[in-house]
């Protein structure tokens, strides 16, 4: 089965180890959630998988459908099908959303093939409608002056347009109002399918009512300390994290 596998992953920033032997398998077709205290290393895991240059992997591997991606540039990993919805999306002044996504879609086409503009816009507008993003956003600069919720919605729009085979959503629910949460969740659910594996990082069980996970993992100090089904999220919400660490 096609899987995103994280094997005994150790990663540091400078001299400081953050991931300490993390193991996780996300098969296509499944949605996994990761919860865990602030600073436990959730975003670090997402960024290390995506190839952020600040982190050094000291041990272990990340395999995308059996192929190690650790030596690859971030853009190569992305074109292989890995998508990361950022916890803090970056602003890119002067680059419109329409042009940015277009460049990203174009980058996935074979050399010499030009993206068909009318088809592209038709798809873009359809996805924007699904996510209730007003048309005017196409000509706004990427994330510049966006509210927190608008940024998250725009991340999901990019995901919908790029149709990754593995998506990591880092706290995409943070900063969303109730209506936006529903819209974003339905956007995510629309992408769910046998060809897609997802890792959803969140602090709130509420999100998992909308995006129902196949598995829930708890992260503590750079490793997965507990895994279970969706009920684990309810228990965490009710009881906090201390019992997990105590148990360990």
């Amino acid at each position: 089965m096609k899987t995103l596998s994280i094997r005994n992953l150790h990663a540091s920033i400078g001299e400081k180890p953050i991931l300490r032997g993390l193991n996780l398998d996300i098969p296509q077709g499944e949605v996994h959630a990761i919860m865990g205290k602030n600073g436990s290393g959730k975003s670090t895991l997402a960024k290390v998988m995506a190839g952020h240059p600040d982190y050094t992997v000291t041990e272990g591997d990340v395999l995308l459908n059996g192929q190690s991606i650790l030596g690859m540039e971030p853009d190569v990993r992305a074109r292989l099908g890995l998508f990361l919805a950022f916890q803090y999306p970056m602003e890119i002044p002067g680059v419109t959303i329409a042009n940015f996504i277009r460049a990203a879609v174009q980058a996935r086409l074979p050399e010499g093939e030009e993206l068909e503009a009318t088809e592209y816009y038709a798809k873009l507008y359809a996805k924007m409608d699904e996510l209730s993003i007003p048309r005017a956003f196409t000509s706004r600069s990427v994330n510049e002056g966006f509210s927190g919720g608008e940024k998250k919605r725009c991340e999901i729009l990019q995901m919908a347009m790029l149709q990754p085979s593995y998506a990591v959503l880092d706290e995409t629910d943070s900063g969303l109002d109730i209506d936006a949460l529903k819209v974003v969740s339905s956007g995510v659910n629309a992408l769910r399918g046998p060809e897609v594996g997802m890792l959803v990082i969140t602090h709130y069980q509420r999100l998992l009512d909308y995006i129902v996970p196949d598995k829930v993992h708890v992260m503590g100090e750079g490793e997965i300390v507990l895994s279970g089904d969706k009920d684990l999220a309810l228990k965490l919400e009710a009881e906090g994290y201390d019992w997990v660490t105590a148990k360990k």
Partner: peptide, 26 residues
Amino acid sequence: NAEQIFYMQQRGLSEAAAMSLAVNGF
């Protein structure tokens, strides 16, 4: 900013393409 370039690379743009896009944006 290196974070901007990483963000764009994560969307599948090569480093040079990301730089170009940022400069054109500027």
